[in-house]
Design a protein around this nucleic acid. Structure first.
Length: 373
RNA sequence: GGUGCCAUAGCUCAGUAGGUAGAGCAACGGACUGAAAAUCCGUGUGUCCCCGGUUCGAUUCCUGGUGGCACCA
């Protein structure tokens, strides 16, 4: 809801109005007894009759939560195009939730939107960081929440799109606050793991945090390393930082998922990998080869080339491996989606229904507040 | 046309000295709170080419087909 105040030579008009939500023409003029409307709302912008002298137009958003439209789906399901259409329809901007498109050094292999789309809609968190930066889901949460705060002062709808589910969860539900870890503690633990093996980590965790020891995946060294880092850094068990609660967000969330049959999805993946190869993926990987130890480059579409450069696989095997690993990645994403009951799914053949669906949801959301005024 | 070899999972192939089978890859499922395109865990999906024969029992041995490969014509 928007409080609109228009100050003219002769009068001050104050009106509470719904935001320009449906993308339809919205007029508000009857009370002026004019034949022509004084101003119209259209797609988040206010257009004023030029024959009228306006001294000031002030608006502010009031009471109704702004909205985050989350567009997700497995890799190569067409998120980029759909989210761009949604953003254009609602005259807003896109935040990318993609843990690899963040990095400006990686372009072809991460399938960032093309320059045409980037010029039509403002995108955030694409090529915003360097592969030399230390990055993680918590940082993403912090930076996106900050960015949303900024954006919601201008618009009341923002689109979040991507397939990095942990990152999306971090924005929608939050993740627990943890202290930063000294590099020395981290490196010591890694060295210990490499020298003494995972058994040594289990032994230490059982001592420092028996609670987490019982629920942890004891085969997964990353989980154990992380828990131990926290224990050693703080002197308190890692489990004492785990709240198991969702953070409250000052915005509403609608989740849209894009789906396709396995056959179609796999075909899209295979074709996209071929396109990437034709666009010069091998050269991009060769350029990044010196950085292959960076976590950012522990990524499908790059690590396979590094094996090829090291002589461990043939050219054809490399491309097959990229396709196969991308398919596996998509399956892993699907596993994550199955647990999230909040997602409204649309098949690729019915993407035309997405914007009408969002508009219906908006009507329901905002109608309830209308009675307050 | 002749001779030899081969036919087993979606693919490449093991194997059963006769008791209806198993590896790798692919595929499929799950976990997931500061590396997440990461990391970790689990699952065999089969007319053992076809028709007969021998046998208590044949994917395995035998006859004959069919298909493939190699060599000789």
């Amino acid at each position: 809801m928007v409080l609109l105040k228009i100050i003219t030579k002769s009068s001050v008009i104050s009106k509470s109005l719904p935001f320009s939500y449906f993308g339809k023409l919205f007029t508000e003029a009857a009370h002026l007894k004019r034949e022509q409307p004084l101003f119209i709302f259209y797609k988040n912008r206010i257009y004023i009759d030029p024959r009228f002298t306006i001294f000031a137009v002030m608006t502010h958003i009031n009471s109704v939560k702004p909205l985050l439209i989350v567009v997700t789906g497995p890799t190569a399901s067409g998120k980029t195009l759909v989210s761009s259409e949604i953003a254009q329809h609602f005259c807003t901007e896109i935040i990318s939730a993609d843990s690899r498109q963040l990095f400006r050094e990686m372009e072809i292999g991460t399938a960032i939107p093309d320059s045409d789309l980037l010029s039509k809609v403002k995108h955030h968190f694409i090529h915003s960081h360097s592969i030399n930066d230390y990055y993680n889901a918590s940082r993403f949460e912090e930076e996106v929440i900050q960015k949303l705060h900024e954006l919601y002062s201008k618009v009341d709808i923002v689109v979040l799109t991507g397939g990095s589910m942990l990152y999306i969860d971090a924005v929608c539900n939050g993740i627990d606050d943890l202290p930063p870890i000294d590099l020395e503690i981290r490196n010591n633990l890694i060295a210990r793991f490499e020298k003494e093996g995972i058994e040594s980590l289990r032994f230490e965790l059982k001592k420092l945090d028996p609670d987490y020891y019982h629920e942890a995946d004891l085969q997964n060294h990353k989980r154990l390393l992380h828990a131990l880092e926290i224990c050693l850094q703080t002197g308190k068990p890692y489990s004492s930082f785990r709240t198991h609660t969702r953070k409250q967000r000052p915005f509403g969330i609608i989740k849209i998922g894009l789906s396709a049959s396995r056959e179609i999805l796999y075909d899209r993946i295979n074709r996209r990998v071929d396109d990437m190869v034709n666009a010069g993926l091998e050269n991009e990987a060769r350029r990044l080869y010196p950085y292959r130890r960076n976590n950012a480059l522990n990524t499908v579409g790059y690590r396979e080339w590094f094996d090829y450069f090291d002589g461990f696989s043939s050219y054809d095997e490399t491309i097959e491996k990229i396709k196969s690993n991308t398919r596996r990645y998509a399956r892993k994403q699907l596993t994550w989606f199955r647990r999230d009951g909040e997602v409204k799914w649309f098949d690729l053949s019915e993407t035309g229904q997405i914007i009408p669906y969002i508009e219906t949801r908006l009507k329901i959301l905002w109608k309830n507040h209308h009675h307050l005024y």
